[in-house]
Design a protein around this nucleic acid. Structure first.
Lengths: 327, 327
DNA sequence: CTGTTAGCGCGTTCAT
DNA sequence: ATGAACGCGCTAACAG
């Protein structure tokens, strides 16, 4: 910066104005000289120093529970795109579903003076999160964190479950098994199971069960398949992992996909059309969720001080062969 | 930092020594006082300021061509884990296969004084890359960039292709169609096709063809299927996208998976066991590739000035139903 | 409109 | 072993 100032025969302050938002304060003559000096020297301002001085680092942090989860990556894609569009960069932290790593990452992010934080983890370490929240805006994605008063963007889980049950009902399925990952406090997971239990009891002609992934799921699935019931059976998988697990198990049980049993999956993955007769799904608008999460942050950074808001997107039903029962 | 110094009745310099690597220079008494002061005030050093002063930001950048590509995400997982293990944080930049975005991200990363860069893109903007390379260590992942003398970590493509051909040969397939994504300069993509063409001509009893994904692939695939040939036919897909595309097309053509035609895929995806009789694959050690990429950077940061090194990992064959021909 | 000055939070000489 | 003083690259307050 000194070199630029010297070459343009101006002060550092003018150069600072040029690269900042005060360019209109400069006379054309000086602006031109600075521009040329910058050009010839190939000068690039140092964000670290700017951040140190102004407190604006143009850095956004994202805490992800599992970077290998396609849902998280899809959301991250939306976030990253929105970031770049607004001149921000994204620091990605994968906690690997581990509380201790969440703590480490939280400390690291804070030390970088990130301007905002997107949280897609269990959000244990409440104290640190709340403390951090006093310094910067935060937005939760998919998972609610109790006692953390911040914006939340995710899926309208109750409505998605209703759509699933409606569709299964309409297609003639009567005996429904919801398979979820193990309850570990993930709010969306709980909400889905909860809505399912609630809604299924309202339909007298249908019956609902709930299972979790784990060692025993294979045996339990087999039991479900062979037990007598009120009518055609179907699985409802609560997320991509559950779908993968269940489909694998069905194959191992020698069950043709999907003649004897229906399947509807929450979350859409690119391979769903390829398995058996194709897997019917409820797609989440993951990209929009990511973009919205970033925009929440941006609004807060611009001074929006409204009470915490909730953005729950609707799921979109994509019908494939797994819910077209053969008689 | 001032507050800590004041509370511990020492100078800022001592606090700096305490949080830095000069802790052994301090007397036990002072170290203890500082430790307690830090504890009571909840002091956390500011990485921005440390970076500004020492040039060590503990930040690593990663340039990814397509964040939705499972391969890239798997590598990123390894990188991120290694980063955290060594106290680094990761700034992820998705270029979305767009040269202009690559340029923007490159400029952003530089402005943050990242210490090293992991590149998994086409690496156009050679000038900027080389200029950046003079300031910091770089490592290429999967894709070579000509005229950029830096470490490269990826797959031993020639060997992987040989493994595929060996396996197909052994299983009795004679008429092989390699389907690759469109050649856009991606070195690994080219190497695979190149090795295939070379190796297949060495086997007189086999015949090889090469196609690229695109509008016409469906028709071309159908032509391949119906044309007479030297024996059983098989597809060899060059990456996950090609596998997805081909499997989808085979289904649309009403081709049972995989009775009439074999399939072996480069890259392993979690849904391969579920499609048809299961898809045989050549798995890349993506996690190790990511970890190795970071370690390359770390070595360079520690002063290693050896000539650029090449790490090419072997692929691992995973046999499933798609290469078990029915007669 | 422009330059001068004083830090942002920290590491690093120098002294002592 | 410890502290004082300076500067990393930049912005903001003030003065002109």
């Amino acid at each position: 910066m000194n070199d630029v100032a010297e070459l343009a025969r101006v002060s550092k302050a003018s150069v600072s104005r040029f690269i900042g938002e005060d360019r209109q304060l400069l006379s054309d003559a000086i602006a031109l000289r600075i521009e040329q000096a910058i050009e010839t020297l190939g000068y690039r301002p140092n964000q670290m120093a700017r951040g140190l001085k102004r407190g604006r680092t143009r850095l956004i942090g994202m805490l992800v529970a599992d970077i290998r989860n396609p849902y998280s990556v899809a959301v991250m894609h939306g976030v990253e795109t929105a970031c770049r569009l607004h001149g921000y960069s994204l620091v990605v932290c994968n906690t690997n579903r581990d509380d201790e790593q969440e703590r480490i990452h939280l400390a690291a992010l804070r030390s970088y003076n990130i301007e905002g934080l997107i949280v897609n983890t269990l959000g244990h370490h409440l104290d640190e999160l709340r403390q951090l929240h006093e310094e910067l805006p935060m937005v939760l994605v998919d998972r609610k964190v109790e006692q953390l008063r911040s914006d939340l963007v995710g899926l309208n889980n109750a409505d998605a479950v209703r759509q699933a049950i409606d569709h299964l009902d309409e297609r003639g399925y009567r005996d429904i098994l919801l398979v979820s990952e193990q309850q570990d406090g993930t709010s969306s997971r709980f909400e889905r199971v909860d809505a399912f239990k609630h809604l299924i009891t309202q339909r007298a002609h249908m019956r609902g069960h709930v299972l979790e992934t784990g060692d025993q799921l294979g045996a339990q699935l087999q039991a479900f398949l062979s037990a007598p019931g009120p009518g055609p059976k179907a699985l409802f998988t609560g997320n991509g992992i559950a779908t993968l697990t269940c489909t694998r198990l069905l194959r191992e049980l020698g069950c043709p996909l999907f003649d004897d049993i229906g399947l509807i999956a929450l979350d859409e993955l690119d391979w769903y059309p390829l398995v058996g007769s194709g897997i019917t799904s409820l797609a989440q608008p993951t990209y929009d969720i990511g973009v919205t999460a970033f925009e929440c942050l941006l609004n807060r950074l611009r001074g929006d001080a409204e009470p915490p808001r909730l953005f729950d997107f609707p799921a979109q039903l994509i019908i494939r062969g797994s819910t077209q029962p053969r008689r």
